[in-house]
Design a protein around this nucleic acid. Structure first.
Lengths: 153, 153
DNA sequence: CCCCCTATGTCAAAATCCTGACATGAAGGA
DNA sequence: TCCTTCATGTCAGGATTTTGACATAGGGGG
């Protein structure tokens, strides 16, 4: 007689908390909370920090490009950029001679703020990475990426 | 002479997209988007579906317990529950003889709606799980859990 | 040259979520 | 008993984000 439920498809678990989606949400929520708390002391929100970090590594990104990179809508990113502009952390030209995309750049003030906030965020990242065997880091990163890709992210 | 930066701590990568936090956010955003799209055809939002699923497995949960289980505030969960009540998918007593917590239960209508939506969500979950080697599923779940725990989630 | 398609920035309105606050009910200790 | 503490449900306000829509700029193809 053969086993029923051949390969109990790894998944439809009996408990919701065993689902990948639940764990993913839990980890993301914990990260978001920790970053919120840490960044508040630096006067930054999570989307604002994400913007500064991206602009530091890839200066000249436009609003739409930043939005795609941070997984929010253009409209949301627009208000974030306005906030950063009002705080003099980034600069954007009012017009451009070619196209509509307005390239954003960090100001000196923005670079300083980013440097200060980065250490706090990196400490959080370190806490996460240290929570599991280091030899699994590469696989974890790869698997998260594959999941996102499979879902059309 | 000793090495500088002993153990280039696995992590501060040169590219933001190599960070665990970024990958986590990306995967969570992709999952959220896929679930949003799939659940819309069933007339449910993601928090609403999460509620129904939890109440199916653990009937009688209170508003505060549901909020903690889904990683949102009591206030947010309260409006979700009101929506579900107005749609006659769950029921909550107006009063209780002991304590303040109001236990929520699925209605027959709610169970039917959940059954319909569940297949769509499980298909998404399946897509995610199939995106990486099955032998890594257990480790992935465990590592996500450890990360959340380390961050105080 | 003109039309179609795409991408971008922006505005307006709505939905969603969170912060802060308050009142009630239960439990435990002085 | 009384009081302190904690957890819960709820209200009000504001902040954030999304949905929907519109106008503009550039690239191709007819």
């Amino acid at each position: 007689m053969k086993d029923r439920t051949p390969v109990p498809p790894p998944h439809p678990a009996d408990d919701v908390t065993e689902h990948v989606g639940y764990r993913l949400k839990r980890a993301a929520a914990a990260l978001r909370g920790a970053m919120d708390k840490a960044l508040r002391e630096h006067g930054l929100t999570v989307p604002q920090y994400a913007c500064l970090e991206l602009l530091d590594q890839r200066p000249g990104l436009s609003n739409a490009e930043l939005a795609r990179s941070t997984f929010v809508t253009r409209q949301s990113m627009n208000v974030v950029l306005r906030g950063l502009q009002d705080a003099d952390l980034i600069s954007r030209p009012a017009t451009t001679d070619h196209g509509r995309a307005l390239p954003a750049h960090l100001t000196e003030h923005g670079r300083e703020r980013l440097d200060a906030a980065r250490s706090a965020v990196y400490a959080i990242e370190r806490t996460m990475v240290d929570a599991f065997p280091q030899r699994r880091l590469a696989a974890l990163l790869a698997d998260l990426d594959r999941m996102a890709e499979a879902l059309g992210g």
